[in-house]
Design a protein around this nucleic acid. Structure first.
Length: 585
RNA sequence: GCGGUUGUAGUCUAGUUUGGCAGGACAUCAGCCUCCCACGCUGACGACCCGGGUUCAAAUCCCGGCAACCGCACCA
């Protein structure tokens, strides 16, 4: 891209506008700034809250998902169990001569022809050895390579005064949900399926974050872990979104080097097996609708299926929801991973806590079961002090086998012990199974708040008659109303200020402005995306009506100020449009 | 992390070649004007990325750091 075009591209314009008007900027500016960290100003903080509120409305209010808030600092054990300590790192080697750094595993793949799967499994020592064996040198300058080192992309810290109590800043909010699964399951009244949402900060020590809000080291993630029974994978919400169209870039096409878009309905995507789980597909549909509500039209969105080696270690199928932005092309705004039972299983194993759920059958299943009961009175005298061991072995034996062997041979050999019929009772016992125990499967939609905010900004940006305008959807606009006196004299300011207070009292985010000409104030308001302007003029003094101005069309309607609260509430709830706010002028 | 380019009020920028009072525009604030889209007038506020060096004197030259942009690399 040419320097000139870059100067005017939307990323530059948005970044400048964001800084100037207080949406966001780079943190720690007074000390020169630190890349990968952003501070949200008054407008940005509010915009972000509004976007997150929409996530809550969608998932918590409508779908009944539970929301929690858990710590960022996490003891090492958790991320050892989750696999992050092992996988959230890159082996790097540095050239001794030119100091360039390379991924050690990638070098082996490219230069020595080691397969990707193999290279990924290697330890540092193995990598080092293989590099030496193949006498691999710096691909840039031919210099010698140093020892490979791990670059861990999690932030490491210690908990309390003991250096051995290692902790990490979480790179995702999901683990905070998995480790609390038992309690959350109880709070869901032990009913499956259910979902848990967490919106909070996550940390990733990116090597070189350079894309403004799109890649920061500390960011806000909205992880929704949805737990369901893999044997009953049906989603009751499917009917609501089955006809929603999804634009998919499938792995099979990507493997052939194509980014062909397959446009199918949710129902079709499932039928054709493009998306493996109903819940997965349903959440993708909701994600698409959410982005539309944030101002990103369908044709500027797509879901790209991750290739096996691009997927995170826990995932068996993943789609990234991407949005087209001007400077960088397609960028990820949400990830949709099928995590299976990976995480709960890992935590169950590491912690020793059972992560199974119990699901009652509609009708209990009666089952006749073969049971072996050792008759200790008879075993004792024969095996003496080994009798206990024999009994234990018997409890592990397959009853079926025991019975068959006894019938056929007249005895059953277990280890070095010979069991005769009189040593045991073989019973047919009726048991009633009332349900099933299993580890739930998880589908995870995971949104990056900061990225949602950036795309909402970029898609809201319009240049109109040489001035900037942000046409946020009214329900995410950081400021809802601008209230103005037409001129600042003759009692109009007092009247307007009173009206503004009244509207704030009614629960609106309204701002009063009397500085400069009315045109200038409209322009100022447009630039931060205030959807409606309410202007008090001389007619207001006579008949109590005010003008309401629409940010996008600049149209105006006239309405009695006393009707405003009710009308505006309906407008911001999307019950009525702008024209219904009053009489045309 | 590497290489190249760059860093002047909130924003855009002049000045850097050749060291010598840092200037403008927009925005903001106060006042005037103003009956609906950045009008005009008066005034005010406000900057040389940070640290060190050379020099009588540094925005300017040199060194180091930080940051941004571009390229490379990286992005579980």
């Amino acid at each position: 891209m040419k320097e000139e075009t870059r100067k005017q591209d939307k990323f530059t314009i948005i970044s400048e506008l964001a800084r100037r008007r207080g949406f966001y900027w780079q943190s720690y500016e007074i000390y020169g700034g630190v890349s990968g960290f952003a501070t949200y100003g008054p407008l940005g903080a509010r915009l972000k809250q509004n976007i997150e509120r929409k996530l809550r409305e969608l998932f918590v209010d409508k779908l009944g998902v539970l929301e929690i808030e858990s710590p960022v600092i996490t003891p090492e054990k958790v991320f050892v169990a989750s696999g992050h300590v092992e996988h959230f790192r890159e082996p790097m080697v540095e050239c001794v001569k030119c100091k360039k750094r390379f991924r050690a595993d990638h070098l082996l793949e490219e230069v020595a022809g080691v397969s990707e799967a193999e290279a990924e499994k290697m330890s540092l020592d193995e990598l080092s050895e293989t590099l030496k064996k193949n006498s691999i040198q710096c691909p840039e300058c031919g210099g010698a390579l140093g020892e490979p080192k791990q670059f861990l992309t999690m932030f490491k810290t210690t908990i309390g005064p003991y250096s051995e109590a290692v902790g990490y800043g979480r790179p995702e909010a999901a683990q905070g949900i998995f480790v609390e699964f038992r309690r959350l399951y109880e709070m869901a009244r032990e009913k499956i399926p259910f979902g848990v949402l967490q919106i909070g900060h996550a940390l990733r020590n990116e090597i070189s974050p350079r894309q403004g809000l799109l890649r920061v080291r500390e960011f806000t993630i909205a992880d929704l872990e949805f737990f369901f029974d893999p044997e009953e994978p049906d989603c009751h919400l499917l009917k609501e979104v089955k006809d929603e169209m999804l634009r998919l870039v499938l792995a099979e096409h990507r493997l052939k080097g194509s980014e062909k878009i397959t446009e199918v309905s949710v129902a079709e995507a499932l039928k054709k097996g493009y998306v493996k789980s109903e819940w997965h597909a349903v959440f993708m549909a909701y994600a698409k609708k959410l982005l539309i509500e944030l101002g990103v039209s369908a044709e500027n969105q797509r879901f790209i299926e991750k290739l096996p080696w691009e997927r995170a270690h826990y995932s068996s199928q993943s789609f990234d929801q991407q949005v087209l932005v001007e400077r960088w092309g397609w960028v990820e705004v949400s990830g949709h991973a099928y995590r299976g039972d990976y995480d709960l299983k890992q935590h169950a194993e590491s912690s020793g806590v059972d992560m199974c759920v119990f699901k009652e059958y509609e009708k209990p299943v009666e089952r006749e079961q073969l049971v072996i009961k050792p008759l200790m009175a008879n075993l004792g005298p024969v095996f003496k002090n080994e009798a206990g061991k024999v009994a234990e072995l018997l409890s592990k034996a397959d009853p079926q086998e025991v019975e068959v062997s006894l019938k056929k041979e007249g005895f059953f050999k277990i280890g070095k012990y010979k069991i005769l019929p009189e040593h045991i009772n073989v019973l047919r016992q009726k048991t009633v199974e009332r349900g099933r125990r299993f580890i739930p499967h998880v589908v995870e939609p995971s949104f990056g708040s900061d990225r949602l905010l950036y795309v909402a900004l970029e898609y809201a940006y319009r240049a109109k008659e040489d001035r900037a305008l942000l046409n946020f959807p009214p329900d995410i606009a950081p400021i809802q109303l601008g209230v103005y006196p037409l001129v600042s004299k003759d009692g109009l300011p007092e009247k307007a200020l009173a009206l503004c207070r009244e509207l704030v009292d009614e629960g609106f985010v309204a701002e009063y402005d009397e500085a400069g000409s009315i045109g200038r104030r409209y322009a100022r308001a447009d630039e931060v995306g205030i959807p409606l302007g309410v202007t008090v003029d001389y007619d207001t003094l006579k008949d109590g009506t005010v003008t309401v101005r629409d940010r996008d069309s600049w149209k105006q309607v006239r309405s009695p100020s006393k009707d405003l609260p009710q009308l505006l509430h309906r407008y911001f709830r999307k019950k009525i449009g702008f024209d219904a706010l009053g009489a045309p002028i």
